[in-house]
Design a protein around this nucleic acid. Sequence first.
DNA 1: CGCGAGATTGAACCTGTTCAAACCGTGTGG
DNA 2: CCACACGGTTTGAACAGGTTCAATCTCGCG
Lengths: 235, 235
Amino acid sequence: MLPSIKCQSCSINQLCLPVMLVESEIEHLDSIIQRKKPLNKNEMLFRAGDDFEAIYAVRSGCIKSYTISEDGVEQVTGFHLPGEIIGLDAISREMHPSMAKAIETSSVCTIPYSKLEMLSGEIPGLRQQLIRVMSKEIHDDQELMLLLNKKSADERLAAFLMNLSSRFASRGLSRDCFNLTMTRNDMANYLGLAVETVSRLFSKLQDRKYISIKDKEITIEDMTGLSKLAGTRCN
Amino acid sequence: MLPSIKCQSCSINQLCLPVMLVESEIEHLDSIIQRKKPLNKNEMLFRAGDDFEAIYAVRSGCIKSYTISEDGVEQVTGFHLPGEIIGLDAISREMHPSMAKAIETSSVCTIPYSKLEMLSGEIPGLRQQLIRVMSKEIHDDQELMLLLNKKSADERLAAFLMNLSSRFASRGLSRDCFNLTMTRNDMANYLGLAVETVSRLFSKLQDRKYISIKDKEITIEDMTGLSKLAGTRCN
DNA sequence: CGCGAGATTGAACCTGTTCAAACCGTGTGG
DNA sequence: CCACACGGTTTGAACAGGTTCAATCTCGCG
């Protein structure tokens, strides 16, 4: 518990649950939130089958969420950046159907759901924001389905990079230079491709001067080109 | 407006928003719901870009929801049976990002969102159920992503049929004999396959006595076999 | 009867997978 | 301090699942 960190002063509170709240309401929300010590790389936040107690807001770092099918195949369902909420898929069954793991040192805010649910009865703005966040997740998932179902490997990777880029930008970070903290494996899994394919595509995108990569750091050299690739083009 | 139809007497109210409500609350909910005349086959319920006014509950028939990407490619995102709620992806942007069309004669209940939002401040059970429905949709979408990303064509079709089967069963209908109201094209699109592939797979599943098809009516002859196919197997 | 949308079947093709090998960087223990 | 092991990445070559294109079939409907 780190009492010094509060929603009121959190740099990303405009991306998170407090968006529509006034000062006094934020204080109220803040009072139910628990903040534990940061998770180390590869540490689990929750596992499939765990009782549903709380939803989580990413404060820093990056959390990977994924499911495992009966036959043991892993499916990465998302990479969550600061301000994003995790665990919403657990509400309906009161049990986590998916897992969440830190892919780099990350801190999260724990929001006990029963308290949030009560509070949302009192604060209309909180209720609205929670529902908006869920609605956005539904919408984003549908976009992802389109991506996975209808696009070629090139388009998928380009779209993935553009998506990351704009999410970093909306957090006040650079839109054309950022770290790819996840492994090639995780990316490939998320995009429904083989690792080898992703690796080849990175090489190709570099050859064609769309991007350049140094270690984990990617620089988008030709944003319009890449976005065109993500959209319509086929090769 | 058909005043004779009410949530209180609706045969599927235990699958719909009223699940957790007591009689008086259901009445209240019912009072804000509008019921128009049924939609004909191929009639649109809403279009992408439409202002978000309401969410919809399917009462009878089947509604297909789908998106269209910038480059005009259609992606079917779901087939909605009675009791299911449509339009939840529109809340966050106050605009419909997707389309919904009746694929057979269907009736829907229109639930004006501003009124629902207000009512959900007064009725905790309604708020909870709305959030559960959204949570379930998030979860279902993730399962679908796994299906599209990690499974072979055979597994996809088998899983699709099993999914329909169990949804019909939970509506008190036969779990092993039902109508496939959607076209092969829609199924293929939804599953991320070519029409031809779906057609071939149906033939194959019939040859191997998993199912039999007569016109639009499918009978599942070997439920355990089909579910095994949907799960682990590969050919 | 004949038209047209949807469904089925066949055959060639292509994108992305799989298998295999090598490479690179980092942390660990002798 | 170096050797080595190991996870992650890259590259090459063969393979396969599903697509694409084209032709035919079926059925409902004017």
